[in-house]
Design a binder for these strands. Structure first.
Lengths: 248, 248
DNA sequence: TTATTTTTTGACGGTTGGTCAAAAAGTAGG
DNA sequence: CCTACTTTTTGACCAACCGTCAAAAAATAA
């Protein structure tokens, strides 16, 4: 047998394995979205992909590892949108608005994000994952943070924003991040929303993000600039293909 | 047997049951904090309280019901602090700061709050609880929201804050709530904090809350007023007994 | 002491996550 | 085509879990 043929055989097998891994993740994501964390079982996954349980465990060392892989997969989508957002041609605070739009598109397009991501935040699940997945998780988190912090530093360098020490760019990022993350969770809780009487979570979130940046005196302030128009431009220039996801 | 004696007997029994319920909740809370959601099992609770599992199930119809009861118990503590906070004698925004201080005391004194509360937010757990517990949950949530919204409306009435329609007081509350809740969760995730380089979550949260309220132009703005001094006064006048919890 | 009601029990059924010896499939050489 | 070897796949198996419920134990009443 020729070397090239051997390679072809090997890579076909590898391709099979890779395809199966994707299949497992797809099925797992669907089950997680449909039946929640408790409804997601390794047995059911095995059944649905028509392989035995042992084979599933050859791909992921435990359930938490699988969930982490799921979260990484999703987060890569988020990063893709974020990194597109920061290419927007405009003032730093407009780019910040673009990141906000990216997050909104992301949250609307991938409602399962909440399901995968929040489980990972909440319980000590991530720490059970394989080392490689833990590192991958850290890496994608880092790229996310970098996009946000980079934009904030851009604002400082442009002279649009001052942060008196000991405050730092990361502190503003922490605020935006917590606020956004928290809103997505609280916004999915009917009890709270009933109590508050909020109808459109996303619109509220957008306003509170602007208020927050105004609070840090990041210019131009929201009353000095038409950020709704900026948003339209963002959707047109950067996220034209995703526009359908965001308009209700 | 006299009626009064019968009553005494009944009430002793009832007292026993009530005490046992408290014992179950105490053990459950400890287990949840020590071993996480996955480490909390009904068998282990039964073992620790030295009753059989059936008896535990006589108090709580299922695990989720128990978790909900736990969350309610904790939330009552939160409300107690919140309702004390709003008695602070000062301007509305100072009272808002008092609520922030109450939340900080709460988060520091009851780290298990995150464990109980977040599990309830995340999964569809609350809906499995008994009707009475669901109602109780709604009620305590309502009181929490009322304290915050009431203070915001106080600010509006005092002329310190304007909210142009269609914005409402509840929208500001949603922001503060999401921001605070999100920060507590993200702040407990080492990965994120490493990436961001935040050391003191609580201090950062305090600053971001002030920035947020500044963003809504709630007067006096943080640069017009010494809210650190206000905080000292709050800790002295309202939370003297809890002061130890908040000073590191 | 006996009859009746209430409370407590733990064995049991069904379902998880995870393991591992054995079976099946694939590969190589003659 | 057959045989020896390697890799992959399998599903019976284990321990742990939630929740049930007939039967045992305790409390109460007569």
């Amino acid at each position: 047998m020729l070397y090239s043929e051997q390679m072809a055989t090997l890579s076909r097998k590898q391709r099979e394995i890779r395809d199966r891994e994707k299949l497992i993740l797809d099925v797992a994501r669907r089950l997680l979205l449909e039946k929640g964390y408790l409804g997601l079982s390794m047995d059911r996954i095995a059944e649905e992909i028509e392989y035995s349980k042992g084979t599933v465990y050859q791909h992921f060392r435990c359930k938490e590892d699988l969930l982490t892989a799921l979260a990484i997969q999703t987060k890569l989508k988020r990063i893709e949108l974020f990194e597109r957002a920061v290419t927007f041609d405009g003032r730093p605070r407009e780019r910040m608005t673009a990141i906000g739009a990216a997050d909104e598109i992301f949250a609307r397009r991938f409602p399962d994000y909440i399901a995968t991501e929040e489980v990972l935040y909440v319980q000590s699940i991530a720490c059970k994952a394989s080392e490689s997945n833990q590192e991958a998780m850290q890496e994608v988190d880092g790229r996310c943070v970098a996009a946000v912090c980079g934009t904030i530093r851009g604002g400082i360098e442009a002279g649009d924003l001052e942060i008196p020490p000991p405050r730092e760019a990361s502190e503003i990022a922490f605020g935006i991040w917590g606020m956004t993350f928290g809103s997505h969770i609280v916004g999915k809780t009917p009890t709270c929303m009933d109590q508050l009487g909020i109808k459109d979570t996303f619109t509220s979130l957008r306003r509170m993000q602007q208020a927050y940046l105004d609070g840090w005196n990041w210019r131009p302030l929201s009353h000095e600039w038409d950020y709704d128009a900026t948003r339209d431009r963002i959707l047109e220039e950067v996220f034209a293909d995703e526009r359908a996801a965001i308009t209700i």
